[in-house]
Design a protein around this nucleic acid. Structure first.
Length: 261
DNA sequence: ATGCCTTTCCCAGAAAGA
């Protein structure tokens, strides 16, 4: 079974690249983030033509998460219990969706950016992650293969950014954010560390500006956390950096995990 | 070369991204 996660930065703008990637890479389950379309505006028919079903939770201009599967989609849940909103607690954003795809239970997540550590959005990010971790114990400890995947907007260690000196006092690398990731490990999840197809670091994101991709100025912020059942079944994991090349790419590359399920 | 920001709102420039 091939499982993948990819921040598309607009499913509308990325549709040709998405369809091409589905055909070439043949994932069984692809979790997507930043679809940037309303719930009913996802290009379901185009994806269906390749044999895939879609569960999508979108809101229009920002955010939006989905799960694309060719092994079934059942028990879809949007959002999680006690998820905070922004800027007010009752204004919920489309950042989480879960489904059961064949033997696998999986969440597609778009963690809030945080903007800067002194911004209310940063506090929201930490609260969102804390609320999420509070909902996962039963699935993590169950026998069923389980994963939370997506754009976590946090680099787990300094090895996961191209130059730590560039990120002093910046979001994505602060101790509280990394502490939030540690909570997932403490719960019993495993960071499925992908191999890079080039270079020493499996970065998943490169800024569009300044030729960052070509200079190797990347970050590993798209992550796969698997429970022990799934972790034991993993046979390979890699970042498909080729998807960051060429005309009209997303600024993120897909993370691909193969598992014997 | 892998190539120097992109996407959405909508037609102008702001907001957001990380």
């Amino acid at each position: 079974m091939r499982i993948a996660t990819w921040n598309l930065n607009s499913v509308t703008a990325r549709l040709p690249r998405l369809l091409q990637w589905l055909e070439e890479s043949e994932p069984d389950v692809l979790c997507v983030q930043e679809t940037k379309v309303a719930g009913d505006k996802f290009p379901v028919a185009e994806v269906a033509a390749l044999g895939y079903e879609v569960a999508h939770h979108g809101q229009g201009r920002w955010n939006g998460v989905g799960i694309i599967s060719r092994v079934g989609i059942a028990d879809v849940v949007t959002d999680f219990a006690q998820s905070p909103g922004f800027p007010e607690s009752d204004i919920k954003e489309a950042r989480a969706i879960a489904a059961t795809c064949g033997p696998l239970r999986i969440w597609s997540l778009y963690v809030p950016n945080g903007r800067t550590p002194d911004d209310p959005h940063y506090r929201y990010k930490l609260e969102w992650l804390k609320a999420l971790s509070g909902t996962l114990a039963a699935d993590v400890h169950g026998e069923r293969p389980f994963a939370i995947v997506g754009d976590f907007n946090i680099a787990p260690t300094d090895d996961d950014v191209w130059d730590p000196a560039q990120f002093v006092d910046a979001t994505h690398v602060t101790a509280p954010e990394r502490g939030a990731l540690q909570q997932f490990l403490d719960l019993g999840l495993h960071d499925v560390f992908p191999r890079p197809l080039k270079g020493d670091h499996p970065y998943t994101y490169w800024d569009y500006r300044a030729g960052s991709f070509h200079k190797g100025w990347g970050m590993r912020i798209d992550l796969v956390y698997a429970n022990t059942t799934l972790q034991k079944a993993v046979t390979d994991a890699y970042v498909d950096r080729d998807a960051r090349k060429g005309k009209g790419p997303s600024d993120h590359a897909p993370v691909v995990v193969d598992a014997s399920l």
